[in-house]
Design a protein around this nucleic acid. Structure first.
Lengths: 218, 218
DNA sequence: AACGTAATTCTTGTATACGAAAACCTTGAC
DNA sequence: GTCAAGGTTTTCGTATACAAGAATTACGTT
């Protein structure tokens, strides 16, 4: 299926914002970007709408759209919500997960482990996403899956940043193991708790990272 | 601030979809609606995007946009997520809530009670929204507040439907009381549990309602 | 020189025009 | 009568044109 140009541009801009090519508050110039992408303003405006609705940009009527990079506080808030969503995924999945999916989780986890050993953060990142994706799916709640994916995607670049913290990868792996064990045992509460802290700790680590970066900058 | 036409139309369409003026799968004709609203296709297309992204419509490239009314299954799924969000609101609010906000909650609750006694479902509905709004705010997590409002708004018309179930109003009031009590006591777990069941029960009641409507139709 | 105001320019929001893809309708063969 | 192929028509996606509001600048007054 041939996607439309506006969608492609939206993806492109989304990536550019998420990887920090645009800084907070920067104005997205319609005609300028239209030139850059070799399209008219129409598909760009459609892309802007998508950005605004997903919270990556703010659209002020008759003024323009401005990129909105979440600050440390907002990020922690988002991780807090993500933790609750993933906890729910785990809670539901504990009752519904298939043996097959458990196998897939273990396999993804193994690939994670290998990536850690190979110091391949890109691979780790990819497999980690796979791990969580399976979990969302296994919640058996399509809406929850969709919302989880949405927020996960939004937090993706910050998760990555957070992986730099020393020893975090190993700890993360251990947490994954605990999650799979709880799921296998059908322990809904345990799975929920494990996931909640697994995600929440990322927000906290992120907080510390920010603090240390601040300190280093002085 | 003068809003733009496309936003006004998006709101209008949103209301029309939510109150059931459009049935599931119905195609939204661009030129037809453009005539109806006396605008060109451009603002309509922008409004469509908003609908598609909030899940109220589906946009199929080169085919058009079709309204997507959630079925019973999806509704229950949404209530399940809403329950988790509200539980988190309660959990966080238990630690942060001010005496002032507690007072407001009690006041909103009282107005709810009066609405129940006066058989004024509109008023109940309004005050109930107020009650939950305060809770979202008192979570102290702006992102959570925003997401909760978004989903609450989306579930609004179905909540209303669900209020018809006999005895539900009185039960709901009792649940509100329990929530406020837990918050006052600073009991995070208790508040979370109370809210989770308060919301989740709505999904279940809804399920029963659907089932009984089905039965009645036979 | 500083401030307020008016004119100009720039940008956004909306309308219209055009090209392309899908839906449809007709027509003809089996 | 049914099905398929080709053309017609509708509708979507994009480009361009136009209108209205905001920003900026230039100028006049104090």
């Amino acid at each position: 299926m041939e996607r439309k140009r506006s969608d492609i541009i939206a993806d492109e801009l989304e990536s550019l914002i998420l990887d920090g090519s645009f800084s907070d508050g920067e104005r997205l110039d319609e005609s300028q970007l239209a030139d850059r992408f070799n399209v008219s303003r129409t598909p760009l405006r459609e892309a802007f709408q998508r950005l605004a609705l997903s919270g990556l940009a703010e659209q002020i009527p008759r003024r323009g759209v401005f990129v909105r990079q979440p600050g440390p506080v907002e990020l922690i808030e988002m991780f807090e919500v993500m933790a609750a969503l993933e906890a729910l995924c785990g809670e539901l999945a504990a009752a519904r997960i298939t043996d097959e999916a458990l196998e897939e989780l273990r396999a993804a986890n193994l690939r994670c482990q290998q990536a850690v050993e190979a110091r391949d953060t890109d691979a780790y990142y990819r497999e980690n996403e796979c791990f969580h994706g399976i979990l969302y799916r296994q919640s058996g709640n399509g809406f929850l899956e969709q919302e989880s994916r949405r927020l996960h995607r939004r937090l993706q670049p910050f998760r990555r940043l957070q992986l730099r913290v020393r020893g975090r990868l190993a700890q993360s792996m251990a947490e994954h193991e605990a999650i799979v064990d709880a799921l296998e045992a059908g322990d809904a509460k345990g799975a929920a708790a494990a996931l909640k802290s697994h995600v929440a700790v990322q927000g906290e680590k992120f907080h510390h990272l920010i603090a240390s970066l601040r300190q280093a900058a002085e």
